[in-house]
Structures are given as C-alpha cells and as structure tokens.
C-alpha cells in the first residue's frame, strides 16, 4: 500500500516536472522523429546527411528565433519569408555589384531587417492595427521591393569569402555555427534580462504589464525588430547556401517558420514557450522533410504530412491548456 502511494507520488512529480519544462515536450517529439528515421530511412544518420540537415535547418531556425519573440509577445509576423527574400537579394547585390565585404553586407541586411521590423511594430503598437494584417501587407510590399531591385533576375555571387561560409568547420556547417551563436545570445537575453521577461509578460497579460508601468509598446517593437533582424540573417544564410541572390527565395517560408515555433511549443496566444523549444521545433520540421525526401515521398504528400504534424502539435497544446488564457 505504502509502496503504491510512493510510486503514484513519484509519477505525479515526474508528470508535473514534465509539464513545467517547455523543452521536454518538443524534445520528446524530436526523439520520436529520430526513432522514426531509424526505422524508415537508416541513411538519415549518414554523416553527409546530418551535415546537410544542419545547413538546411539553419535558415528556418534563425528566422524562427525572431518569430518566437513576436509570438511570445502576443503578436504574429507574417513578413519573415519576404524579409528573407529581400535580405538574400540585397546581400547578393551589395557583395557582387558594390564590392561590400560579406560581413558588412550582413550588417547592412540586419539593419534593413531591423527597419522593416520596427515599421511593423509601429503600425501594430502606435496605429493599433492587428499584427496579422500589418505583416500581411509588409509581406507583399517587401517581396515587391525584392523583385524591383533585382529586376526579377538571379544575382550570382562569386566572392570567395562569402562562399567559404558554406563550408564545414569541425564537422558542422559554418552557417549552423552562426545559428548557434544567435541562439545563445538570444536565449541569454530572453532568460536572463528584464526585457526578456517583459516580452513574455506582455504576451501573457498586456494590460497587467502596462499597469505595472512597463513600456509594452516598446517591448512589442523590440520583438518585431528581433524578428526582422533574425529573418535578415536567415536570408543572408540562404544566400550563402545558394551562392546567389534569388528574388523569389523565402517564398512561403513564413508558414514553415511559424510551424517550427508552434511545434516547438510556443503558444500562438503568447506568453508561453522558450527559444530552445523553438530550436527543437525547427529541427522537427526540417527532419520530417528530410525523412520524407529520403523515403521518396512526393512533394504534394509532404504538404499533407507537414500540415498534419502542425495539427497534432496544436492538439497537444490544447490538451496542455496552452490556448486557455
């Protein structure tokens, strides 16, 4: 009898701990995916495939970091895919036609991303327009600008320093190192600073946070700026992978990025989630895509499977009471 009570208490404690750590749920899902990969396509674990996967995940994962900030603050940013495309084109033009150093080109596109993010933020916070509508508009405007400045043409980049970023360092693609640096910096900001706490608090209960005297408009603007900057870095990284600027690059990425954030366990209602969980979410989405390609599943079917995964994640969140505010 006493033993039964002990086990039931232990089980309850484990369940509570499991529910309290955001990363554990998405990590469980990722482990499930890894087991599935071992069964369906053992070639998933080939070193070449893992290296390719790390390169592939970097673009979505970097953009997802910024998107997580916006969603955690209680808004949404649909313009990430277009910012990726614009940053990709601008970086290629600056390096190929204006002789910018690759690092200065990165700095430039980050600034452009920040300006677009701030514009989104100001429309949302000062003009009180829903973020969904604002960023839907920006999505189209920014994509149009990418087409205008490139003339709709691809811009090849022959700069060796730029293309060298697509190489591997200690068995891991350099672009993945870039992602890891961004992840560490933003996680420290998110977990250890007061501003990081305010981002979460604003998403959780905006009115209460405002009543406490917090500049929650500023916090939201900051989240949008982070999203713009992260998307710009993602566009630059995409340019490194492609060796060129493509005006149509990043088309539809906003859905992949939002899916990665949601699968990572960040609540679309804001306030709940973490950046590490978002990273795991990006890995889950990219790994599934990779497994489907290796298993020879066609492109049309891939859309269906990805959609189902998103729905399953939403159901899991509903069970965990994430949608209840």
């Amino acid at each position: 009898m006493a033993r039964n009570t002990f086990y039931s208490r232990l089980l309850t404690t484990i369940k509570e701990k499991y529910a309290s750590i955001d990363e554990l749920k998405s990590l469980t899902g990722f482990i499930g995916i890894l087991i599935l990969a071992a069964v369906v396509t053992p070639q998933f674990y080939l070193p070449q495939n893992i290296t390719m996967l790390l390169g592939q995940v970097s673009v979505i994962a970097i953009a997802a970091l910024g998107e997580a900030f916006v969603i955690l603050s209680g808004s949404i940013d649909l313009s990430v895919g277009s910012i990726i495309g614009l940053a990709n084109v601008v970086a290629a033009i600056l390096i190929a036609q204006y002789n910018f150093s690759p690092y200065m080109a990165l700095f430039s596109v980050m600034t452009i991303g920040g300006i677009i993010g701030l514009t989104n933020g100001i429309f949302v916070t000062k003009l009180r327009i829903p973020s969904f509508v604002v960023t839907l508009g920006t999505l189209t405007v920014v994509r149009g600008i990418a087409y205008i400045i490139s003339g709709g043409l691809n811009i090849p980049v022959y700069n060796e320093e730029f293309l060298r970023l697509n190489e591997v360092l200690y068995g891991v693609p350099i672009i993945f190192w870039i992602y890891l640096i961004a992840l560490v910096i933003l996680t420290l900001f998110f977990e250890k600073t007061r501003l990081g706490l305010y981002v979460r608090a604003t998403g959780s209960n905006e009115l209460a946070v405002r009543n406490l005297g917090v500049d929650n408009s500023g916090v939201k603007n900051l989240a949008f700026v982070f999203s713009g900057v992260c998307s710009a870095i993602a566009g630059y990284v995409l340019g490194v992978r492609l060796g060129a600027g493509y005006p149509h690059s990043g088309l539809g990425y906003e859905l992949d990025v939002i899916a990665a954030v949601v699968v990572g366990g960040v609540a679309l209602t804001g306030g709940t989630g973490s950046l590490i969980a978002t990273a795991i979410g990006a890995f889950i989405m990219t790994s599934i895509l990779n497994i489907m390609v290796l298993a020879g599943i066609g492109g049309f079917m891939q859309y269906v499977v990805r959609g189902i995964i998103l729905l399953v994640a939403a159901l899991a969140m509903r069970r965990a009471g994430v949608f209840v505010k």
Binding site: T111, G114, I115, L118, G121, I122, T125, L195, D215, S217, G218, V219, N221, L222, V225
Partner: peptide
C-alpha cells in the same frame, strides 16, 4: 523609451 532606443540604434 525602448522604441526611441531602437530608432537611435538603427
């Protein structure tokens, strides 16, 4: 404000 800080930085 945070927004002014961001504007200055950009």
């Amino acid at each position: 404000s945070i927004t002014m800080g961001i504007v200055l930085c950009l």
